[in-house]
Design a protein around this nucleic acid. Structure first.
Lengths: 232, 232
DNA sequence: TCAAAATGTGTCTATTCCACACAATTAAAT
DNA sequence: ATTTAATTGTGTGGAATAGACACATTTTGA
């Protein structure tokens, strides 16, 4: 029952752009390849899609292989389909964008894959079109972190406002006014005071908050001000 | 030189979600299939990717086939890769989002493909996962039309503010205050007065504007107000 | 007990949002 | 010619928000 006999079939892979945040800098989880092809060079974590595997399932399998985590925040970034993007054989790659808490993964699995957390500012050149994928992912992160709760996926469940501010400053590579940032964030009503404080701080202990995810979903379009009565 | 001997190769297709605007309603260009499989049912325009064809080039070829147009606004929407999305054989489809001026296409080519402009509100059920593609495309349109110049792709080069307002009202399915809309649009500085007026109107002739595309690019992030000093 | 570092909250001004009103233009009807 | 109906362009004022900036509080260590 092959209705499409004369068409070309090609390899389909997925590659994952994995962001983390160490409290100071935005980092990428990259592989120093100790296998062919392109052995010795840096690349994103990736793999081929299996015969009976959905696309998203393939991405989650690859992320689980590398990090040991199964509840990672993943979004599809898009398909990369240039004819010669892989010199060995035509391969269409669907890139996935993942955000993880950098302190919360299987270090042993990461070592086994020869993977390393590399600061975005020190990113080496990557194989194939992986540099393009990273550029697009960063753009996507900057574009969406201001509008949607995705930035919070890079932080622990509970966090302080100064930590959140440092994350935003890292994502957008710019300094923010502490007082205006705090007021603006709190005025959204999206943060819930957990009642505890950040005891690991050397000076004044900051209040720890968590995200009101349900409320964030309801406010999905609140940013957009062409339509009256939609905000806040 | 086949380095990936044991991997599955699958069919790759592209499907196009084509929006148009007739001055009143948002419409989709859909195919009533007069070919197998799923003959007689409605679907998006699509086709298989050729052996030596880039992904975006495949989408543009398919769009050109249907409309005769070659300078269409096209964006990749994403890959759809569920195992059983095509019951005949596994096919990964990359969906493309296209906006065209509804009065500006090759009517003969459209007829030859048995394609029809259907109002979004009367959209029939489509084959495979094409309904999901349309839903995602509409969400994408609503999400982006407020932030980027893509809405203008649905209008003629020159347009009036009331026409633009009707477009926004159709996209978001809501009524807008004429005076606030006009002031807000003009305050962006993105519209250029062409000097002429809409002579086909029955009453007062509205001023015709065109979009300052270069300025829009510079203001790409102007919508976003978490970072100070970025707006306007 | 004081200094240093970090956090929480407040104030003022300029700008923007938005509900709402009025004047001007055009063609058709009288 | 005048009126009428439909449509377009512009204005106003109060409420909310953005953004520059100041001060008080908490905590540790000298």
């Amino acid at each position: 029952m092959n209705r499409y006999p004369n068409q070309t079939r090609i390899l389909v892979a997925t590659d994952c752009i994995i962001f983390g945040f160490d409290g100071e800098e935005l980092k990428l989880l990259l592989i120093k390849r100790h296998f062919e092809p392109e052995i010795g060079k840096w690349s994103l974590m990736g793999g081929f899609l299996k015969e009976e595997e959905d696309l998203e399932a393939g991405a989650k399998r690859i992320l689980n292989d590398l990090t040991g985590l199964s509840n990672i925040y993943v979004e599809q970034l898009g398909a990369f389909g240039k004819v010669d993007r892989d010199p060995a054989e035509r391969t269409l790659s669907v890139a996935f964008f993942a955000l993880i808490n950098i302190h919360d993964h299987d270090q042993e699995a990461v070592r086994a894959h020869n993977a390393h957390w590399i600061s975005l500012k020190n990113k080496p050149a990557l194989i194939f079109d992986h540099d393009d994928m990273v550029s697009l992912a960063l753009e996507h992160l900057r574009y969406n972190a201001a509008l949607h709760p995705i930035g919070f996926e890079l932080l622990p469940e509970a966090f302080t406002i100064p930590q959140l501010q440092k994350l935003y400053e890292a994502i957008y590579d710019m300094q923010l006014d502490r007082r205006n940032f705090s007021r603006k964030i709190l005025s959204t009503g999206l943060l819930i005071d957990t009642g505890s404080k950040n005891m690991s701080a050397p000076t004044k202990k900051a209040i720890m908050y968590c995200l009101d995810k349900e409320k964030y979903q309801r406010k999905f379009y609140a940013f957009w001000n062409f339509m009256p009565g939609q905000g806040k």
